[in-house]
Design a binder for these strands. Sequence first.
DNA 1: GAAATTATGAAAAAATATTTCTCCTCCGCT
DNA 2: AGCGGAGGAGAAATATTTTTTCATAATTTC
Lengths: 287, 287
Amino acid sequence: MDLFHALSDEDGRLSGLDRRLAQLALEDVDFVVNSSIGELAERAGVSPPTVTRFCRRLGCKGYPDFKVQLARLTYVGLRYVKPEVPTETADEVAEDIIAKAQNALFQLHRQLDFAALDTAARLLRGADFIQAFGASGNSAMIVNELHNRLFRLGCRVNASNDHNMNAMISAAALPGTVVFGSSFTGRDPALVHCLGLLRKRAIPTIVVTQSGSPVATAADVVISVDLPEGKNIFRPTSTRYAYLAVIDMLANLVAYTDRAKALKTLRSIKEELVSRRDGDDRQLLGD
Amino acid sequence: MDLFHALSDEDGRLSGLDRRLAQLALEDVDFVVNSSIGELAERAGVSPPTVTRFCRRLGCKGYPDFKVQLARLTYVGLRYVKPEVPTETADEVAEDIIAKAQNALFQLHRQLDFAALDTAARLLRGADFIQAFGASGNSAMIVNELHNRLFRLGCRVNASNDHNMNAMISAAALPGTVVFGSSFTGRDPALVHCLGLLRKRAIPTIVVTQSGSPVATAADVVISVDLPEGKNIFRPTSTRYAYLAVIDMLANLVAYTDRAKALKTLRSIKEELVSRRDGDDRQLLGD
DNA sequence: GAAATTATGAAAAAATATTTCTCCTCCGCT
DNA sequence: AGCGGAGGAGAAATATTTTTTCATAATTTC
């Protein structure tokens, strides 16, 4: 997975011919993956040994290993390198949306702070009451999902997407409350205001947002998600997939911290649903 | 992806040693991908030429090509073969959720009916009023997202997740209305009932659901999504990512069918948001 | 501006993969 | 049962690919 990082050479450690090779690899994975070292060397205008050394510097065992690692990346990792393909037909749009969504997930995985995730999950499980604050549009979906996921695990949780309401809730929050906030931009002044109120009153806060943003600064636990936004304004933002994944991770981890409790609640829900349905108990919990 | 099909040997075309090799490849991709032909041959107890022949029969150019193709599969395609890896720590959970989500998207892409998608988008764009019917939990998120996506494009749309309400709306629907429904299981009797009402009254209906299900049968346009459910009840269903992607595709296509209209509405929203924010107009439309 | 370090390629060596050829086994047929 | 053919499998030979070695050139460092 680090091969991608090494290839994109963000810290400029590659020099001369290596950079040329890296660029070629990113531009035309298919060619590289299907070529022998000689063919690649020729196309890049270097000698085979240079290619081998390049692979080693990137952390691979040799050229075949490099090919294999590159092939692994291709499926998702490299798609976003191609800037923006204009789409038109249904299959192009589908391809585009799937690729962007998978990329968002891929990128999220690369930048995730597992420790923060863990801390957040523990905080949530330990809370007497969880308040989830969203805003218009995207974050609303996220906090509603958090609600939907956590109530099933036996958590006391409320989701709210109204700024005034959020401020009142913040002012009224009792000890034992944990507040969760979501802001895609990290620049939601109303949420920052709430977080300020809560900090004064020592109510722990968790946010999913852009790192370094005002929202991030104002919160106790930050799960940062920094994704590039595409240029196609007609395509809904793929960042939502990453945020949704964060919610799933938190829900999953919260469930794990007290499996017995989670299981008990889930089972109650299931009984309720199955008794009202056709008895097929392999179905999802909540259509 | 056809390599995967060939390897899983659903039609039993592989024989003897080939089957052994296929099984080994599926079981331990990492080993295969990192071994020379000799090492693999030894571990499988066959000779190198047998391995080469095996690769050829699978449609690869040779052993190195086989390795590369197998590596390509690993990232997404093969993960779901491993039944359920038990997860525990934050990084395991993260990995698991990302993998399952990417898989859901991958699978969706493979089974998508682009024509249905296209028909649905045209219907939505042509509608005077769109009613989006969900249910508890998962579908609620989906139809709320549809609302959130479509109102931005200038569509008249209402999302409703209450069964009684949905029935009333169905009974009251005027010509020009288009109804969109989402059901993960396809066995939501209340939704089926609504679709029946609507069919009688010649109101067009679009659903996203399991193919062949009662909901699918009762609707005019079916975008079918058939995904296997994992066994880990503590992990929120990854099918949501696929449904969300369907919404994004529909929204994107609806926008494309009348770009001017979409652009105009999006621009109005943006002006409203930017004027109330810090003036950074590169931000998302709706935090 | 000289010494040391690093980068590069040609050629040789090693590793790896494929082809060829032969043997063996399993079938179907007499 | 025995014969003949098809197909599968491996040993050895061959071909290909990759890596190492070594000599040279470029670059950096002091």
